Computed example of a mutant assay.
Amino acid sequence: MARLARAEVFSPDEVAVVHVMNRVVRRCFLLGTDSLTGKNYDHRGTGAIGTQHILLTIATQAR
């Protein structure tokens, strides 16, 4: 079954967290413990949270 292109699903001026959700659904865990393999990915948390904070700061200053 073919998937719709992101441009067909979301408006260009709409803010969405598509990439993160897409990766989790495809079994590529970003954070936490993968129950299937038992691997723990908590070491990624500090970098991900720091990056989100920086992006949020930039986005709020741009308004």
Rank of each mutant, 00 (worst) to 15 (best):
31 L>G: 01
39 K>P: 00
44 R>K: 10
47 G>H: 13
50 G>A: 12
39 K>I: 04
31 L>S: 07
11 S>H: 08
25 V>L: 12
15 V>D: 00
17 V>C: 09
1 M>E: 06
34 D>L: 01
11 S>Y: 00
41 Y>V: 00
5 A>L: 12
45 G>D: 09
38 G>L: 07
28 C>R: 14
18 V>P: 04
58 I>V: 09
63 R>K: 06
49 I>C: 08
42 D>N: 13
29 F>V: 09
56 L>M: 12
30 L>M: 10
60 T>N: 10
7 A>G: 10
24 V>W: 02
4 L>P: 07
22 N>L: 06
48 A>F: 13
53 H>K: 14
56 L>E: 07
56 L>T: 10
3 R>S: 03
25 V>D: 05
27 R>C: 15
14 E>R: 06
3 R>W: 00
27 R>Q: 06
9 V>F: 07
59 A>V: 10
38 G>M: 07
41 Y>L: 04
59 A>K: 08
22 N>Q: 08
44 R>H: 14
57 T>D: 07
11 S>P: 00
20 V>Y: 01
21 M>E: 07
63 R>L: 02
46 T>E: 08
49 I>Q: 13
63 R>Y: 04
54 I>W: 13
19 H>I: 03
17 V>M: 05
42 D>S: 13
15 V>R: 00
19 H>Q: 06
11 S>M: 02
6 R>A: 08
24 V>A: 05
12 P>R: 02
29 F>G: 11
34 D>G: 04
32 G>W: 02
47 G>N: 15
16 A>M: 01
16 A>N: 11
36 L>R: 05
63 R>E: 08
52 Q>T: 15
28 C>W: 01
52 Q>W: 14
14 E>I: 04
51 T>R: 06
19 H>W: 01
50 G>W: 08
